[in-house]
Design a binder for these strands. Structure first.
Lengths: 207, 207, 207, 207
DNA sequence: AATGAATGAGAATTCATTCAT
DNA sequence: AATGAATGAATTCTCATTCAT
């Protein structure tokens, strides 16, 4: 490798990054339009203008791009979530910031995921659990646990609670996306109040 | 045609029903073992002992059986849900009965859906929206609306609320299924208390 | 069989004839619309309203209906041809009558064969040689031979001649059918004059 | 890309051409042996030694190869026809040269089309109209029109005439192929004399 | 004789992946 | 690293035909 390559990304490096990006973008579009099931590697690669063999220099399979895509979203969201945590000093503050951030993220991104899909939603809907998504889940659960530990909330089943919170955020978020205008503040208010109101009523864990 | 034929279905009729059933049952097993993605029509039909062409006398594609299966589940659950509604005289009673029924239903059925799959496996999760499933949604939302109407609960966004409840039931249910022993009562208690506690805190609709 | 059956066709017989006719008619339509290749027994039988099994009470295969259909046309045309022969006393008279009759027959029938076909004619075109068609050919050749025998025309290669006449009739007939208005008289005049003018020039057979 | 590549096709290019040729050749054989109807894509590809998928890199269907084959024949014959035209200075000369050339072409090629089929067999005869075949038609009609224009023949219906000539050539040619030995000269003589003798008798077009 | 569901061989076709260029 | 044709296993699905009712 030449010295130049150590200083700035060479042509190679640029192309590599750009190609990977191009494939991910194309994949996002194709999955959105055709659904996971129907989308083929050929559909994806055709849209990039690259040759079919080139796909395999970047991903091992269609499944791998799909996961990379899901991972990508989670990976981009996780720092945001982390920032919410660091910026809040109350549990409510964290919860509200996190959910608001998630809904804003949805509003920004979901255009990608719903482009060209009929509202009646044909295609069965596929969801994967990637490492990055797992990490988001763990981050949320960790935050809850820490708050409970510190006495900022009653000690309840953190696993159920985080599952329930994520579920509420996801589904209320989906409903929110179906309405016009998109009202992330109203949806956040709803979700936060439901959860926050519910927590004190939850069965306590034995100390 | 003999009188008997008017009273009892002919042999042909019987076989048709039996075959449809056989294909649905085989499909349930195959989807459970292989996952939706990997399952093929051949896998399904092989298990029934029927001829491959016979599959197409009953369903047009793998997707169609899958939907029939989901529809079937919802169709079997709906009367139960309805019975919960008719048997309860308080909102809390309904909610608890409904969620408990759902978790029991899950516990009964999920054997079918996860049989033989390694527990840690990251199987993509597929979900369809069939007419019967839609009706379950509507039933839940209708029940909420009716309770609010009657003054049995504060007037809140019924759409968000039903979405949130179903979401909580689904996700807490999934977590419940991962634990041993399966504790439907504990999970029900958690979900009901969360929702019931949260509702009074929700933003009210303008009257 | 009852006496009645000997006097008039019974219900059975009526149905049998009617069903055969119905299948032939449906087949004609289907072959015309879809082309021989693409047409299936199911397409044909569906159009009759009969059950698929019933087809096999009348024909052994799709090929058999197709031939029956071709045969049918030839069988209906042959008596006409024969009548031309019997009614004419000159060679020219026969030839003209026969070709005119054929063109009239085409004009009557071809509606069936071209119904719904695009003029650009997709589908490869299939032609079979059935026994009845063979007989028409033999009839024509026989007529030529007889005329030559009787000295009414020079002795030439009857096989080539009848092939050529039939070919001319077929192709000029096809062109005729593409024009509007359909002018069977003009087409007949053309074909007859070409053949009649050509015959004297043909190489003679050794006596 | 090296300079050489500009001069000679790369190896890839060569294989592509060779494969296309191989498929066409195999198709010709298979159609000849099995008939159009019975021949399958598998039969064709098996004979090439290529993989089944490869077929679809070159043709979309069995029908498409068939048409390509017919087109190919016409494409190879058309320059011959053109040469006949350019070499002749009389109408008779052209007609005779063209028909002789066609019969020779048939005699050369028909081995391919009938190889291995029992002679008496009633094989359905399939015919397509491809662009190249259309051009042969137009070429013939154009030649006739030009001769008439120049006063080398009476002004008659060029459409009917070219249809009739081609028909005679085809059918007399087929008969010729059934005889042994194959006598292209005799058949040519027959066809030419019939047509040439017939033309002066044809109804004239209004000037 | 009519029915129409079952049959199952086998055709068409796709598509992820490889690999020579 | 890019290319894109070849591969061939695998899958879907059709359809003529049978046969119990």
């Amino acid at each position: 490798m030449s010295d130049a390559a150590l200083l700035a990304p060479g042509k190679r490096e640029q192309t590599k990054v750009a190609n990977r990006r191009a494939i991910l973008d194309a994949a996002r579009e194709v999955f959105a339009e055709l659904g996971y099931e129907a989308a083929t590697v050929r559909d994806i690669i055709r849209r990039t203008g690259l040759a079919s063999g080139t796909f395999y220099n970047y991903f091992r399979s269609r499944e791998e791009v799909f996961e990379a895509l899901a991972d990508d979203g989670a990976a981009r969201f996780r720092p945001i979530l982390r920032a919410c945590w660091e910026a809040s000093n109350t549990f409510e503050g964290y919860l509200r910031a996190a959910i608001q951030a998630y809904f804003d993220f949805m509003a920004d991104e979901h255009e990608n995921w719903l482009a060209g899909r009929p509202p009646g939603e044909r295609h069965p809907h596929v969801r994967v659990k990637t490492p990055e998504i797992e990490r988001v889940f763990l981050e949320v659960r960790g935050a809850f646990a820490q708050v409970m530990e510190a006495g900022g909330a009653p000690r309840v089943d953190a696993d159920y609670l985080s599952a329930a919170c994520i579920a509420v955020a996801r589904e209320v978020g989906d409903k929110m996306m179906e309405r016009r205008p998109i009202d992330t503040v109203g949806a956040t208010d709803f979700a936060v109040k439901l959860i926050l109101g519910g927590i004190p009523a939850l069965p306590r864990l034995a100390p």
